[in-house]
Design a protein around this nucleic acid. Structure first.
Lengths: 196, 196
DNA sequence: TAATTAAACGAACGTTCGTTTGATTAATAG
DNA sequence: CTATTAATCAAACGAACGTTCGTTTAATTA
């Protein structure tokens, strides 16, 4: 056999990328083999190389795509004119929802940085801190206007993002709380802490 | 050559475990090869098997050791008679300090669960939630005494632990803030949030 | 000192990995 | 209808993997 009936390159490429996401999320990048990936797509191992330069380049593409679209989507939603409290609540809501809906992307972006070649890693790291600046700016504005008391911006931003991203690792669609409820709890925690 | 001068089994075993921690932290478990591990220890690949049943068992041992000693160390330190606010502050301080001082252990325990065989994974997961119960109890007591307003205990505990553990992934010993200062910022964030 | 045990070597095992290549068939364009 | 291009297969490549094993040397015991 050779070319199969009804085969379309663009579709195969899409299938490869989404199968890769699924497998890397479940097993990790190093543990996923190209043979598993090919099998998941329903194709021979060698055929993957029509759409992917190498295994490393595949990981790079996945991570980059995720970071770019994360940044873009927040930029689309952000209301820079709003007061800092509203903006912070909006950021919390956006981050949690976006990440829950793209669990595989997030898991990959957060667990597989080590597997990325050095050439690519710096680029992803840059994009990540580019996203984090959005949160730092909100906090900084809040401190300026007096809405928030003085706080170490860098640490607070790291802490908040870690907390929000963490949702991905325990959230279950059939869990006790809805996404909206989870967002509410986190908004309260971020703004007021446990003491209230 | 065969047995080398001055070789002591206990020392070699220790060297294997700490080299494994270092390499897994840096590259990930799947990416670390036994040949790299042996080279780091200064021994032939086959010799590792005098001290380790298999690569999988090595990972299991590392993760289990970490979880057991994490639980033990908190139990030693906990003051169950104190008020909830003090206990929560103590937990924050302990968790951050303990984790920063054992970065490799923490990175492994948090990133390599997927690489653990199913037989072992459940055990580690159980130990983890066993540790998390400590925090939930503090929060629960605080809500009971009225020190904390009502909050979803499960979500709050997850959120706080994610935030605290996150420190491991950005902390640098030569950074701007000392560990004590980082702890202070986090205590304030946990208790009062950014609004204060 | 002789016998025994501990510790490591060195070489190899079969398997699987990522990747390359050339042939072969399906779809498309002239 | 023919020529060309797109898409895939089937087979193989060398390298590296985790692991095993018989041998050799150092340390310990009798």
């Amino acid at each position: 056999m050779a070319r199969t009936k009804g085969s379309v390159g663009a579709d195969t490429k899409t299938a490869i990328y989404s199968a890769a996401k699924k497998l890397i999320e479940a097993k990790g990048f190093e543990a996923m083999t190209l043979r598993q990936l090919a099998a998941e797509v329903g194709v021979q191992p060698g055929s993957v190389y029509r759409y992917v330069e190498s295994k490393d380049e595949l990981l790079q593409a996945l991570m980059n795509q995720h970071m770019v679209s994360l940044i873009e989507n927040w930029e689309k939603l952000e209301r820079k004119g709003d007061d800092p409290v509203s903006r912070l609540k909006a950021f919390v809501a956006f981050h949690i929802r976006y990440h829950i809906e793209r669990r595989a992307d997030v898991v990959i972006a957060n667990l597989e940085l080590r597997s990325l070649g050095e050439e690519y890693r710096a680029d992803v790291v840059t994009k990540r801190s580019q996203y984090e600046v959005n949160l730092r700016n909100i906090l900084s504005d809040g401190v300026k206007t007096g809405a928030f008391p003085k706080v170490d911006l860098e640490v607070a931003a790291f802490a908040i993002i870690a907390m929000l991203t963490g949702v991905c690792f325990w959230y279950r669609p059939d869990g006790r709380l809805s996404i909206d409820e989870i967002i509410e709890v986190h908004q309260k925690l971020v703004l007021q802490g446990v003491v209230g």
